[in-house]
Simulated scan of single mutants.
Amino acid sequence: MTNRGYDVVVDVDAEGDLGHTDLQEDLEFHSSNFEDPQSRNKIPPDTSSNFLNNGSSSRASSSSKAFLWSVQFYAQFFDVDTSEVIRRCTAAIYPRTNFLDVLEGNPDLYGPFWIATTVVMILFLTGTISWKLAHSGQFHYAYDFRLLSGAAGLIYGYTGIVPIGLWGTLKWFGSESANLLECWALYGYANVIWIPVALISWSPISILNYVFVGVGFGISALFLFRNLYPILSATDVRTSKILLIVVLALHAGLAIAIKILFFAHGSPVGDGKAPEGNKPDRLF
């Protein structure tokens, strides 16, 4: 008797006596796939939605374009919690390892955005306090919100535009290790040192402000140098040196701008004149 298409299950009694097996009661027949041995290892296709086409292959092109305008696309750049942001901020101030290793392949824009926003607000407040102390008793002081817009333009512009320029330059020279999100994260977390610097640089003693800003520049520049050097080294030696000098020069320009524009009562560009209309004379 042949059982093509079936496999036999034999129920053995307690005594192990196969001689008295009742085929009607002890045998069960089940569907078998013996005739199709390849079907044993066949994996059913995954019909779940993928990253771009939302599960519809016929609409892949239109869905990928629309996906750029969806919240889900940008949510992946903010996929961090508070503890992770604090850990990254600590690693930026006290670098014990390469910051790209700290990112663990998940660079975020959440930390850089709020760090830059915090720096802007603190520069506005402490810069206002610094100017007020330098001109105490001369006239009635009125807030100048051009200082706030100037701080936003300086910090957001530097943090947003310089990484794009660096990334584009590295791509131009054929670097495969350049990543725009990682460049944004590096520059964004490098700004965290300016928070304590801005908090203590409102002193009317100009030399102290220069020292505080210089320390902030040194720590943040060392952070950028340490993490960008392996990326810049992917280009030729001459190009990498030029790019490194440009990076440090731009960062030094940021530090000088912070000192002059926000703590400028002792700055060589200050004219020392009383403002018109009982308002402070600002550079913005």
Rank of each mutant, 00 (worst) to 15 (best):
Q76K: 15
S63Y: 14
F77S: 03
D46I: 05
Y189K: 06
K65N: 07
Q24N: 12
Y6L: 11
S56H: 13
V9D: 06
G16S: 08
Y156Q: 04
L248S: 04
V213D: 02
N227F: 12
Y94D: 06
G253M: 10
A75H: 07
L18S: 01
F34L: 14
I258N: 07
I155T: 13
V237C: 02
T118F: 09
A116W: 03
W114K: 00
D79C: 07
S149M: 12
V215R: 02
D79Q: 14
G16R: 10
V215T: 09
S175Y: 01
K171W: 00
I245N: 00
S61G: 11
T118D: 02
T128M: 00
T97A: 06
A257Y: 10
Y143N: 09
A249N: 09
L147I: 12
V213I: 12
Y210W: 14
T159E: 12
N54W: 12
E182A: 11
A234V: 06
I43R: 09
L123F: 08
L52E: 08
I231F: 03
E35Q: 15
A198V: 06
W114V: 09
Y143H: 10
V215S: 01
V162M: 03
L283N: 07
L52P: 00
D17H: 02
N3P: 04
A221S: 15
L123I: 07
L52Q: 07
F212W: 15
L254E: 10
I260V: 14
L228A: 08
D281T: 01
K65G: 05
W194I: 04
G216I: 08
L154P: 00
F34P: 00
L208M: 13
T128S: 09
V192D: 02
L244Y: 12
S240Y: 04
F73W: 15
I245W: 05
S233E: 13
D101V: 00
Y94M: 08
N33R: 14
A66N: 15
G277Y: 05
S70I: 04
S49W: 02
A134F: 05
K65P: 00
V269N: 02
P275T: 04
G19F: 12
A152G: 03
N33V: 15
R282E: 02
E28I: 15
V120A: 01
W131S: 01
F78Y: 09
D101Q: 10
G127A: 09
L244F: 15
S58Q: 13
N98D: 14
F262I: 04
T235V: 15
I258F: 03
P45Y: 11
D26G: 05
N191C: 09
D17T: 01
A249F: 15
L123P: 05
Y158E: 04
T90V: 14
Y189E: 03
N209K: 14
A92R: 09
G168I: 07
S70G: 08
D281L: 02
I256T: 05
I93Q: 04
F225C: 05
Y187V: 06
L18V: 07
G5T: 12
L261T: 04
E28C: 06
H140A: 07
F223D: 08
I256E: 01
V9Q: 10
E104V: 02
L148K: 06
G266Q: 04
E15F: 13
Y110W: 11
P230Q: 04
F124T: 03
F284W: 15
S83P: 00
A185Y: 07
R282I: 09
G16T: 10
A190H: 06
A255E: 05
S149G: 13
W202I: 01
